[in-house]
Amino acid sequence: MQLSNHAKCSRRDKELFRLLESQGALSTDQIRLLLFPGTCLRIVQRRLKKLTEAGRIRRERISIDEPYYYYSNKKPGQLEHVLGVSWIYTWVRLSLNESLSLHSFDREVTYKILRPDAFIGIKSTWSDRFTFFYAEMDIAESGHDFGDKVKRYCEYFSSGAYLDQWWVPLAKRFPVIRVVTTGNVKKLEKRIVKANSSNLEFQVFSLNTVKEECLNGRSSSPSIRVR
C-alpha cells in the first residue's frame, strides 16, 4: 500500500527525532542523505524549517558559511566532534546494501581504560556473520595527540579486558579501528604506527573523503566501503 504524503512526513519526522536523540546532532546534508534520498535540498530545508518553527527541533550554525545543524533539546558539547561522528554514521549507513544491515552503532562506549567514539556492528542478511569495528573522529586542530588513544587501544587489547564483551563470540578477530581525521592522513598514520605496540589494524580516512563519498557516491579511496 502506498503511503500518503502526510503519512510519509509523519514517519520520516519520527525517524528524524530518533536520530537526533541517538546521534546528538545532524547537519542539513546528513539529514538529507539519511532521510530524504533523491529529494531536492530546498524541500528538505523547508521541512526542517517548519519543524524548527513548530518547536519540535532546534537549529544553529557554527558559522554563516556553514549549513545548519539540528538537535533535539540540549545543544551538544564538542560540536565539531559530534558532527564528525555523525558523518561516520552517515557514511556507514550509506555503505549498506541488501546483503548488509546495521546491527549496532553505539556512540562513546565507555570501558575502564578506553572510550571509543563509536562501536559498530554490521550483520550479513544472508548469514549470521558479523563485522565489527571501532570508529574514531580525530579533530586535528584540537591539538590532542592521537597516539595516546592508540596506546589505550593497545592496553585494552593486551590486557584482555575486551574478552567479556557481548560481541566477542560473534567476532573472528579484534575489531579494526577506523579513524576519520580533519588533518593529514599520512602524518596521522605515521603517528599511529609509532604508538601501535600491539600491531592492531588502524585504517585512516580524511573527513573530506568521507563527505565526498556520502555526497557524490564516490571517493578517491577504493577501501572506504564497509567490508
Rank of each mutant, 00 (worst) to 15 (best):
Tyr134Arg: 07
Lys123Glu: 10
Phe119Pro: 08
Pro169Asp: 14
Ser95Val: 11
Val179Met: 01
Tyr134His: 10
Ala195Trp: 03
Pro169Tyr: 13
Gly147Tyr: 13
Gln165Ile: 00
Thr125Pro: 00
Trp166Gln: 08
Cys154Gly: 02
Arg173Gly: 01
Asp148His: 13
Val150Ala: 06
Arg152Leu: 06
Asp164Met: 06
Phe146Pro: 01
Arg129Ser: 15
Met137Cys: 11
Thr182Ser: 15
Arg173Glu: 06
Lys149Ile: 04
Asn196Met: 00
Lys149Leu: 05
Thr125His: 01
Lys112His: 14
Pro169His: 14
Thr131Asp: 12
Gly143Gln: 07
Val150Trp: 01
Ser159Thr: 09
Trp167Phe: 05
Leu96Lys: 08
Ser159Asp: 06
Ala161Gly: 06
Arg152Ala: 08
Thr181Val: 04
Val193His: 00
Ser124Gln: 10
His144Pro: 05
Trp166Met: 06
Ala135Ser: 15
Glu136Pro: 05
Gly147Ala: 14
Asp117Pro: 11
Tyr162Pro: 12
Ile120Thr: 15
Asp138Gly: 02
Phe130Gln: 13
Arg115Asn: 10
Thr182Gly: 13
Arg191Phe: 03
Val109Trp: 06
Lys172Leu: 09
Glu141Pro: 04
Asp138Arg: 02
Gly143Met: 03
His103Arg: 12
Leu188Asp: 00
Ser101Pro: 13
Arg115His: 10
Phe119Met: 10
Lys194Gln: 08
Ser99Trp: 10
Val185Glu: 09
Trp126Asp: 00
Glu136Tyr: 04
Phe119Thr: 09
Tyr153Gly: 04
Pro116Ile: 03
Phe133Asn: 12
Val180Gly: 06
Thr181Gln: 03
Ser142Ile: 01
Phe132Arg: 12
Pro169Ile: 15
Ser101Thr: 15
Ser99Phe: 13
Leu170Asn: 12
Arg173Ala: 04
Lys190Arg: 13
Tyr153Pro: 02
Ala140Gly: 01
Leu100Tyr: 13
Gly147Ser: 14
Arg173Gln: 06
Leu163Asn: 00
Gly160Ala: 14
Phe132Asn: 07
Asp145Trp: 05
Asn184Ala: 01
Ile122Cys: 12
Val109Gln: 07
Thr125Ala: 03
Tyr111Gly: 04
Phe157His: 09
Ser99Val: 14
Arg129Lys: 15
Ile177Thr: 12
Asp117Gln: 10
Val109Cys: 04
Arg173Leu: 00
Arg115Gly: 12
Ser142Pro: 05
Tyr162Trp: 14
Lys186Leu: 08
His144Gln: 08
Glu189Met: 06
Trp166Cys: 03
Ile192Ser: 01
His144Asn: 07
Asp117Thr: 10
Asp117Ala: 09
Glu155Tyr: 07
Lys123Val: 10
Ser99Thr: 14
Trp126Glu: 00
Ser101Met: 15
Val150His: 00
Ile139Arg: 11
Asp164Pro: 04
Arg107Asp: 02
Ile113Gly: 03
Val185Met: 10
Ile139Phe: 08
Thr181Ala: 05
Ile177Asn: 07
Ser158Ile: 06
Ser159Ile: 02
Glu108Leu: 03
Trp166Ile: 04
Asp164Ala: 08
Lys112Pro: 11
Gly183Ser: 15
Ser158Glu: 10
Lys187Val: 11
Pro175Ala: 14
Ile120Tyr: 11
Asp145Val: 05
Ile120Trp: 11
Glu189Ile: 02
Pro169Lys: 14
Phe174Val: 02
Arg115Thr: 13
Val185Pro: 05
Ser104Glu: 11
Ile113Val: 03
